[in-house]
Simulated scan of single mutants.
Amino acid sequence: MNIETRALFVFVIVGLVIGVLSGGVAAAMLGSHTSVLRCLVPGLIGAFVGGGLFRVLDIDVGVKNRLFLEIVTASVGALIVLIPAQFIA
């Protein structure tokens, strides 16, 4: 396995872990208990939504740890995704 393949593999694994964590945080904040897959989907979508929103609105959370910042951003995005989804479902 060359270095580029290994870096891509680590990037995907870290992205999945952030997605599960942020989806789980958002689900817990909304009071729902759900499976890992149901945490992963809103977490991954929320990462894009939160990242885009924070970038467009130029929001600075003030967190220096990059991994924690990604989890916070994705969790906010997952909340934005899950709240309307609860009203639709």
Rank of each mutant, 00 (worst) to 15 (best):
S35K: 09
S22K: 04
G24Q: 01
F11E: 15
F68G: 11
V49F: 05
L57C: 05
V36R: 09
I59A: 01
G24R: 02
F9M: 14
V72P: 07
L53E: 00
H33K: 13
V14K: 12
L37Q: 12
F11V: 10
L67V: 09
R6Y: 13
L53G: 03
A26N: 02
P42I: 09
A74R: 03
K64I: 10
E4R: 15
G51F: 02
G46W: 03
P42H: 02
R6V: 15
C39G: 11
E4Q: 15
G50H: 00
L82P: 03
L16D: 03
V49T: 04
V76C: 11
G50D: 01
K64T: 14
I83H: 08
D60P: 09
S35V: 11
L44F: 10
H33C: 12
V20D: 04
A47T: 06
L69V: 11
L8M: 14
H33L: 11
A26L: 01
A74N: 03
L79F: 04
D60W: 03
G15V: 07
E70T: 14
K64V: 08
A7S: 15
S22N: 09
G19L: 01
N2F: 10
V20Y: 06
V17E: 06
V61I: 13
L44G: 02
F9A: 15
V72H: 04
G46K: 06
V61Q: 09
V72N: 04
I59M: 04
L69G: 15
G31K: 04
L16A: 14
G31Q: 09
I71M: 06
G77S: 05
T5E: 14
D58A: 14
V14N: 07
A78H: 08
A26F: 00
R66P: 12
A85R: 08
T73L: 02
G52T: 08
G50F: 00
A27Y: 00
V72G: 10
V41S: 07
V56A: 00
T5V: 12
D60R: 15
V14T: 10
S75C: 02
G50C: 05
R38K: 14
